[in-house]
Design a protein around this nucleic acid. Structure first.
Lengths: 225, 225
DNA sequence: GGTAGGTCTTGTTTTTAGTCAAGGTAAAAT
DNA sequence: ATTTTACCTTGACTAAAAACAAGACCTACC
């Protein structure tokens, strides 16, 4: 297993700090292992600190009264999560669960805030993290409020296409059921739309591997026609 | 008209700073007046800085391909907006327009970042602002993805009810058309749901004044039954 | 005081996607 | 190897809200 120091050295949140600062950060954090399916925090919990994913995957989500789930983020190695209440002083605004066995690094709230107050670069990095997240939410709201499900799905595929760089295909990082949770719809609807796009010759689907036969048309669909 | 110093002294973002720091902040900002309907920035614009509302109201929104508008926020006096790209280094992720004549205070990006790096309290305040906004987005996504329009409208009314403190009524701060834009629906649907809630005896509507006859039932509706 | 422009309401129709139900596939556990 | 369980697909039905359309209301300005 990697050392905490090694992990932290690669986390974007901690880039641009000198080794001295990194040491101080390492001094306040602690490792925590979680099993697949284990809750990390629950909507409304008081917050004692935040986490960085060392390995594995965790999801952050909201549950409705009726039990429907909206996934807000799925985070892998190097991503911080759960920081919002560190700075608002309130409780967690969503829940979080491990979707695979995972190793997390925990940063206690009080001590981390002290560090931030004395390390401007760390503060700026954290501001950048939160700002990026706001931007992502902006896109998410746009998708939910202004686009229909096919456009959301097409956007998602095109975004994957840009991020991953396989030749003409993308590999879904999550199950189709979870994809439905990300896109704010149901597995049935996802299934139907994938079938339709396949019928129209825009994509080919083989389990989690999706071949983008006609990325241009897909890009158009992602804009909402 | 108030002085910039007076205005800035009341802005939560600048609370807890000593007078010396406030002076430095005042030194870098400038006032800008905008007319009702004037665009302040457009989705995709490069960002030279952010704003604080001194007076008037501005809205931040996204427009879809088909011209439908989703309002992300409406900000009044004392609220900062447009800060996201200051810290991501990217362009504005949404557009902004004055919904009334307004006076803004502009903070140039570079100089403000310099200030933040040297004033930990300012950094923490800004972190709190962004974190609160993330929390608000979380609620927004929850509403859009997990609730139907009546529940969203009821949530909105209940939130107003908590914020304003009139006896048993709330006053809409925006037109019903704009309310539709905030809730991710159409004016027709708003109109129908208000009519339905009135018919059920839960509210009474008189232009922008809404009397909450039965707040408990409304609270239930806001949870999604 | 009348007219113009924006806002709001109401009715009708259409679209979208959610729900319910059942069957199929595939991977994992025993 | 077989049973279990999770995941996915397809079909039929239903519900919710958008689109379209027309008329009412209101306010503001000539």
């Amino acid at each position: 297993m990697k050392s905490i120091a090694e992990t932290i050295g690669r986390v974007p949140l901690f880039q641009g700090l000198d080794p001295e600062n990194l040491k101080e950060i390492i001094a306040i954090c602690e490792r925590r292992s979680v099993q697949k399916g284990e809750m990390i925090f629950t909507d409304g919990d008081v917050c004692n600190g935040f986490y960085v994913v060392e390995s594995g995957k965790i999801k952050v989500f909201k549950i409705s009264f009726g039990g429907k789930e909206q996934i807000l983020h799925i985070y892998g190695a190097g991503k911080p999560f759960g920081e919002v209440p560190v700075f608002t002083g309130k409780s967690f605004p969503a829940s979080s669960v491990a979707v695979s066995n995972a190793s997390l690094i925990f940063f206690p709230r009080k001590r981390f805030v002290d560090l931030i107050s004395t390390h401007p670069n760390l503060a700026l990095n954290m501001l950048a993290v939160l700002s990026m997240r706001l931007k992502e939410f902006t896109v998410m709201v746009e998708n939910l409020a202004l686009k229909e499900v096919p456009a959301r799905l097409a956007s998602y595929l095109m975004a994957l296409y840009r991020d991953q760089d396989r030749p003409g295909s993308v590999s879904l990082p999550v199950s189709k059921t979870q994809l439905a949770g990300i896109l704010g719809t149901t597995p049935e609807t996802i299934s139907r739309i994938l079938a339709r796009l396949t019928g129209q010759g825009f994509i080919r689907v083989d389990n989690r591997l999706i071949t983008l036969v006609d990325p241009d048309s897909l890009a158009e669909i992602s804009e909402g026609e």
